[in-house]
Design a protein around this nucleic acid. Structure first.
Length: 860
RNA sequence: GGGUCCGUAGCUCAGCUGGGAGAGCGCCGCCCUUACAAGGCGGAUGUCGGCGGUUCGAACCCGUCCGGACCCACCA
């Protein structure tokens, strides 16, 4: 006999907030994150996951993602699959910027602004050489189970190589080109930013209408751009201006001749119907200029200061110039109207928050139409499935209307564009190792958009372009878990590049989760100051509590608020599990090799086994559908409300009986907890590891088999009988509460009907007598009468009030059923439904009779 | 302007293809009952956003209005 000793193994009545300490190493050993230990023939299960923020700021969204992905991985591993994470992407350029700036500021005491762009850039590359490793150090503290060797890959030569490779493939296929276009320019960051990094905000400006001569009035909110005007556009059908089309006006101040063109883009209803055209500083104007072959004149420099106009405005900041130009026009008498304030929306940089300035510049682009079409088709024909399916709409909205992708960034971190320029204007994209070195050759100074290299993740991490065994086995990956906010950024790009490079989808399922919001449903953001550091709650309540709270809110695709209360609730639950298992161990529960024969089991045993197997089967299904919230809720309810509140309480009685009954009960209890802990393991790994290994004496729950439910244990009869017991117990407890009988007072009682009397007595603190006490209180449930002897101290009024309430309810129900049965519905509804109504009518009727009898009323 | 989603108990949300309104938290009452007060037992709470329609029957389907969130586009 080798009984576990809970006093040493599970010492406290409170589950420790953090039991994770030494467990992680053991899991790695057990192969949770090393797929090869599952065996060469094991079914691969690969998860592509977004990274923790490289600066070390793990936020709640990451905590959610890690929770979900870890749960999927653990379940897969328990199913014997070869589970593999592909964590992280090259988000280097997103987050490292901040880190680099901060770090350099700390070391050198200089800011980016003080150093100036060129100097800072140099310094940043130096920093990378010197301190790049520190980034990994910061990442290391972030999560359990990350395969760091793979994460380190983000910074590795291998990834750089892969980036070079795919760039060249696209370049050679003519899908990458260089063109002068309008880009969203950030005057603060000195870089182009992508369309999706632009946030539109409403600002109050003014709408100024200027007289361009010949009766042409144009309106603008950006007066200073008039310096770069090269045309005025009107609608081709606009009678007012038809005679002017093709003629020339003179641009005020500058004196340049500008042409009047007719273009469909112009809305004749809006304003004066005439539009000034500034091709170098407005996307629409740029498009007009291309259609009409107009020159584009840049009048602002990289800092958004007026430059090169030859006017006195050169050198002025754009806002300064806006006012100065307006004043000049006013003094010339050319301002015909002013509307102020005029609210309009202006694009701002989502990172540096200043107004972006459309700017003509030479950038590298990916031609996306073919790639995007393929990406859309892969989802349309079901090679990749979105979950929940509605989310595919968002995806289509993006890929089906994608503009060419500007991939060059003027940043100081990322993969440099692998293009070299020669002394005679050559532009080449050499294979790695073939870089031209001669006099006058130099590499492009720009780096690639971070999403360019991120897009390679699903295959580059597996060894591509080499045909590795990993690539053959684990590609395409099983599932991508991510938020809907990143569909555009990442999912679409991975899809495009994977289809291009691998001729296959990167993943077969995309599971989209919602965004974690604060307790009041607001987006967590730094500017709102409502961001919660997950580590804080982990420290306070435990990793498992946070994980469970997150999983419990994770309805697919739906945002959910996460409050500290919900984490506390989850902590209370983990603690409850801790104590229940602790108690079971004290009571001698142990996991049997085989469950006792059904004939030797009580209704309670059979009931709990029936429920256990139903829940196991259902949990399994919910996992298949990524229904984390529902499966968490189910496990919570089953464990607490059924196993702990009812079975464990009955088990106490059965164990007290001793002998065979005690032995079978200990087996059933052990078995139930064994399976329950395994079911919970994906969500609360640390807690279940500690409890399960103590309960079973096994090494680790990581490799324990995943329960799927044994249908032969489902036993509706036992469930029905046990439900009767529960109904009677609840009624007796209610009567006790109504009669104000203290729990510790043992009441004499008489029971008429067939029931597990031992259980009833213990659960409601009764002592049986042979005959019902005269003047006692009788409660009825499930056809069983229990008469409590209150020794004449019956609170008649309280009792009558209880009856009155029940009667009112029963009468209401009776009324409802009668109305329904006498309505036309009774003829048209399906027979089984009508039968159900009749049954309910009869039940309600009997209940009404009974209660009226008790109250001394006429039988209704 | 185009689109998506949401409105169910005080709060946060479940309610599958239309047939008896649910959970967690919170609240009220009684209990430190030897696993657990981070607990136990009992209890109260809803014109399922409004109106109209389809149906024998609507939280669920259709229309419309109100209220809220978000995405895309545009704003001379």
């Amino acid at each position: 006999m080798n009984e576990p000793d809970p006093s040493t193994d599970l010492p406290s009545q409170y589950a420790p907030a953090s039991v994770e300490g030494p467990l992680y190493e053991r899991w790695v050993e057990a192969g949770l994150f090393r797929p090869e230990v599952a065996g060469p023939d094991a079914e691969p299960y690969t998860i592509v996951i977004p990274p923790p923020n490289v600066t070390g700021e793990l936020h709640m969204g990451h905590a959610l993602e890690h929770t979900l992905m870890d749960a999927l991985t653990r379940r897969a591993r328990m199913q014997g699959k070869a589970a593999l994470w592909l964590p992280g992407t090259d988000h280097a350029s997103i987050a490292v910027e901040t880190l680099v700036e901060r770090s350099i500021a700390e070391q050198d005491g200089t800011t980016k602004q003080q150093l100036g762009r060129e100097k800072f850039l140099e310094r940043a590359w130096e920093w990378k050489e010197e301190f790049g490793g520190r980034i990994l150090g910061q990442m290391r503290r972030l999560g359990d189970g990350v395969d760091w060797s793979r994460l380190a890959f983000t910074m590795s030569p291998e990834l750089s190589s892969a980036v070079r490779r795919i760039f060249k493939q696209l370049f050679d296929a003519g899908l990458i080109y260089r063109a002068e276009r309008l880009v969203n320019w950030s005057p603060l960051l000195h870089t182009a930013i992508s369309d999706i990094e632009v946030e539109y905000k409403d600002v109050d400006g003014e709408l100024v209408t200027i007289d361009y001569g010949n009766g042409v009035h144009v309106a603008t909110t950006r007066v200073e751009t008039m310096l770069g005007d090269t045309a005025v556009a009107v609608h081709p059908d606009d009678e007012r201006y038809r005679h002017l089309v093709g003629t020339t006006l003179t641009l005020p101040i500058v004196g340049r001749p500008i042409v009047v063109v007719a273009d469909e883009h112009v809305d004749p209803e809006f304003g004066t119907g005439a539009v000034k055209v500034t091709p170098a500083h407005d996307p629409n104007d740029f498009a007009i200029a291309q259609r009409h072959d107009l020159p584009a004149i840049t009048v602002m420099d990289e800092d958004a200061r007026i430059a090169g106009t030859g006017t006195r405005f050169d050198g002025m900041d754009r806002y300064e110039a806006r006012k100065a130009v307006k004043d000049e026009l006013a003094s010339l008498g050319l301002i015909v109207a002013e509307k102020s304030p005029y609210t309009h929306s202006v694009g701002h940089s989502s990172r540096s928050h200043e107004a972006i300035e459309p700017r003509l510049s030479l950038q590298w682009w990916v031609k996306v139409d073919g790639l995007a079409k393929a990406a859309g088709d892969a989802v349309r024909d079901g090679r990749t499935v979105f979950n929940p399916p509605e989310m595919a709409q968002r995806y289509f909205a993006w890929v089906d209307d994608m503009h060419d992708w500007c991939i060059s960034r003027q940043l100081y971190w990322g993969h440099r564009i692998p293009v070299w320029y020669g002394p005679d204007g050559q532009i080449v994209c050499p294979a790695e190792g073939d870089e031209p070195t001669g006099e006058g050759w130099h590499q492009d100074k720009d780096v690639l958009d971070t999403w360019f290299s991120s897009a390679l993740w699903p295959f580059s991490t597996l060894g591509w372009p080499d045909e590795t065994a990993d690539l053959a086995r684990f590609y395409p990956t099983t599932v991508l878990v991510t938020g809907y906010d990143i569909i555009f950024f990442w999912v679409a790009r991975m899809m495009m590049f994977s289809l291009f490079a691998m001729q296959d989808v990167p993943f077969t399922t995309v599971h989209i989760h919602g965004l974690v919001r604060d307790a009041t449903g607001k987006k967590m953001s730094k500017s709102r100051g409502n961001v919660v550091d997950p580590l804080e709650w982990i420290d306070a309540y435990g990793a498992d509590a946070l994980r469970f709270a997150l999983a419990r809110g994770a309805n697919p695709g739906t945002d959910f608020p996460l409050s500290e209360d919900s984490v506390k609730g989850a902590r209370n639950f983990t603690n409850k599990v801790w104590n229940a298992v602790r108690f079971a161990l004290i009571s001698g529960a142990s996991v049997p090799d085989a469950l006792p024969a059904s004939a030797d089991l009580t209704d309670a045993d059979r009931w709990v086994l029936s429920r256990l197997n139903t829940v196991a089967a259902s949990t399994n299904e919910l996992f298949e559908g990524f229904e984390f919230a529902k499966l968490s809720e189910q496990l919570y309810g089953f464990a607490w409300n059924e196993v702990f509140d009812w079975y464990v309480e009955v088990a106490k009685v059965q164990i007290r009986e001793g002998g065979t009954r005690a032995a079978t009960t200990r087996s059933v209890l052990g078995h139930v907890l064994d399976v329950l802990l395994r079911l919970m393991h994906p969500l609360t790994p640390f807690l279940t590891e500690a409890l399960w290994t103590t309960l079973t004496g096994n090494d680790t729950v990581v490799t324990a088999p995943w329960p799927t439910g044994d249908a032969t244990r489902v036993d509706p009869d036992a469930e029905a009988r046990f439900d009767r017991l529960r109904a009677v117990v609840t009624e007796v407890r209610r009567a006790r509460a109504e009669q104000n009988v203290a729990p510790k007072t043992c009441l004499p009682a008489h029971v008429a009907g067939e029931l597990d009397l031992d259980a009833l007595a213990t659960l409601t603190n009764l002592e049986y007598v042979d005959a019902p006490a005269a003047g006692g209180v009788t409660v009825t449930a499930a056809g069983i009468d229990v008469t409590l002897d209150l020794s004449g101290t019956v609170d008649v009024e309280a009792q009558r009030q209880g009856w009155q309430k029940d009667l009112a309810e029963a009468e209401k129900e009776l009324e409802r059923q009668r109305t329904r049965l006498s309505s036309p519905a009774a003829d048209k509804a399906p027979p089984n439904v009508v039968q159900d109504w009749k049954r309910r009518e009869a039940e309600a009727d009997a209940e009404v009779q009974r209660l009226r009898g008790l109250l001394g009323l006429d039988p209704g």
